[in-house]
Design a binder for these strands. Structure first.
Length: 137
DNA sequence: CGTTTGACTACGC
DNA sequence: CGCGTAGCCAAAC
């Protein structure tokens, strides 16, 4: 591995210009398994240099359905409210259809439904570490 | 190239 | 626990 990040590697084309941040965010979200959830901050942390808020922006800009956007929730374990109509309730519905359960206060238990993160092979193949992982030293 | 537009979070009270 | 606030920044136009 080279010292610098190869952002284009996410597209499988090392010489390509860096993929837009939103595209990398979508790519990570596609790894969340059915029936599991991740937080905006968690996705940002995996991406490596963007912020939780940017993940929210990326999802707000999403128009296609090839990204399991419903599996991204806020750090309180709740589905985030948004300006537009029905998006929030649609998200709750989609999650319930996947078997995700909400408690009385509308929260999801991360201990039960939280995503652990991408597996090591996926991370390695996508060069997601900006620094060597601690176990490689 | 300036403006607008948003699905967050940490923190203090 | 609820509320306000300060950082957060890429895209589309």
């Amino acid at each position: 591995m080279s010292g610098s990040r190869r952002l284009g590697a996410l597209n499988g084309v090392e010489t390509a210009p860096p993929a837009p941040v939103y595209a990398r965010i979508y790519h990570i979200i596609r790894q969340i398994p059915l029936g599991r959830v991740a937080t905006y901050g968690q996705i940002a942390s995996i991406e490596g240099h963007c912020t939780a808020r940017m993940v929210g922006y990326a999802l707000a800009a999403l128009d296609e359905d090839d990204v399991p956007w419903q599996r991204v929730i806020n750090g309180q374990g709740r589905v985030s409210e948004r300006s537009g109509d029905g998006g929030t309730s649609r998200q709750r519905l989609k999650l319930m259809e996947e078997g995700v359960r909400f408690d009385r206060k509308g929260r999801i238990d991360f201990e039960v439904f939280g995503w652990e993160g991408p597996d090591f092979v996926w991370i390695r193949d996508h060069d997601m570490f900006s620094e060597p992982p601690p176990w490689s030293r």
